[in-house]
Design a protein around this nucleic acid. Structure first.
Lengths: 133, 133
DNA sequence: CCGCATCCGGGATGATACTG
DNA sequence: CAGTATCATCCCGGATGCGG
């Protein structure tokens, strides 16, 4: 009870609860941690895309992973999937409103990554230097 | 140990394509995707912490994962590690300036997660419903 | 008190082939 | 074009024990 009374954090702590799992963080982080999720959302942030277009844009992704990634995003209500019963069928994916709000944050991460790429690589190199010597 | 466990090997995806700018994104996303990285940064965002304090705060983390997480953050120049040669030794971790700028974005994700937790769970339930029928 | 090493399993990822 | 299905692989991360 008094063991962890040092909880003066107001905004930053995940949830301030003993159990961090239920703050919903994992719900998002696990998805974001998947290999193609962020890049897929970034691509969709530019506008709706058809399956094949996405596959071409996300160089290196397999059909299986693209389908899997889109399904999970759809399940979370972040992406919508609309089928036009033409021949051959045409499936278009787009961000939902919820997806767009998350995508906005994701874009922040993307920008940060680009801005700090060199610095991070330098830090890593320095760190490895110190170790390998 | 860390050098041989190759951190840098598979962090870069092909991405040699002109259209997509993901190189450097993985550098950050892979780190953020790790299970404890975000919560660790969130905890450190509230102020410097000693090893044992972190372990208590991040309920459920093992020593191995805490050490691994901190090492990787240190390698990226996001966290600093300072040892005071007291007896027993005292090791304190803190966010670097770079780490603080990233932590600010991470906080955005945390807030977003909390705000959308219920909505996401509802979407998932609805999605699973439709599927099971 | 702080940190490192070994063993191991599960799940995410990948490769390939096939279908409406 | 837009997926499924199956099999193989690989790495994260958990449990545990040792060492400074």
């Amino acid at each position: 009870m008094f063991a962890e009374e040092n909880f003066a954090r107001d905004t930053l702590t995940p949830c301030g609860q003993p159990d961090h799992e239920d703050c919903g963080l994992r719900l998002v982080l696990d998805r974001l941690g998947e290999k193609w999720t962020v890049m897929t959302m970034a691509e969709l942030a530019a506008g709706p895309r058809r399956y094949r277009v996405l596959q071409r844009a996300l160089q290196g992704i397999t059909q299986r992973m693209l389908t899997l990634t889109l399904r999970r995003l759809e399940r979370d209500g972040l992406v919508s999937r609309s089928v036009e019963p033409t021949n051959p069928p045409s499936v278009t994916y787009a961000l939902t409103h919820r997806g767009e709000t998350l995508a906005a944050l994701v874009v922040g991460l993307v920008d940060w990554s680009r801005a700090h790429k060199n610095g991070i690589e330098a830090s890593q190199a320095a760190f490895d230097m110190r170790r390998d010597d």
